[in-house]
Amino acid sequence: MLRNSLILGLVAVFALALFTIFSEYKTPETLNRTAQYYNENEVSQVGAANVVTAVVVTYRGLDTLGEVTVLFLTASVIGFILRRKKKGEPVVKADKGSEILSTASRILFPGSIILGVYVFVNGHLTPGGGFQGGAVIGTAILLIALANPEFAVSRKVLHWLESLSGVTYVIIGLLGIFLAAGFLDNRILPLGDFGHLLSAGAIPIIYSMIGIKVGAELSGIITDINQTKTNLS
């Protein structure tokens, strides 16, 4: 009883604090200085139709490299903690997916992969980008894993995809130092026509690399979980 009333009191204090913050909040009528700078100069400097992508990949490209690194570390730690089965050892017994699930996953799989590739290839034109596209690809792999508990993507293929795309990403970033204004500058390639698929310099290549890397990492995590030897419970 005392515990419940304490929790209730805490929630009330928290609600009051949030209310005082939000009651004073006014939607700003004009963009702040940073946003205005991006909005005015993005088209001539970066040339991407999606300003968010221009900020994420070029202006704040180093942060994106850090995010990719964090995801890589997470995938490595999960692979380290979950013990994988050796050849011939049985995996943890799990029920096979129902007929509906396995048929639906087989129909949805190619479409999901294509949607993921579309999202990251068009990252500089439409909403979305490498992380979202990679997550869609990971979901496609997960759907197959849900239908078939013994499903596994080849570790070798995933490692190669992941490492190659990561190295390419950093090399493109380093090329920016020598050929353009700085690390991860996208102007190592011509900016092209605004709004076309092959425009905005290196952004389509960088976002494709991020998409492949994120997709491979998430697929690796899913394969690790699906192939784990020890019973999770």
């Binding site: 799990a94 029920d95 997960l142 894993a145 508990p149 899913i222 979980i225 699906n226």
Partner: peptide, 9 residues
Amino acid sequence: FLFFVILRK
């Protein structure tokens, strides 16, 4: 989906 896979496991 991940929660469902782990739930099944």
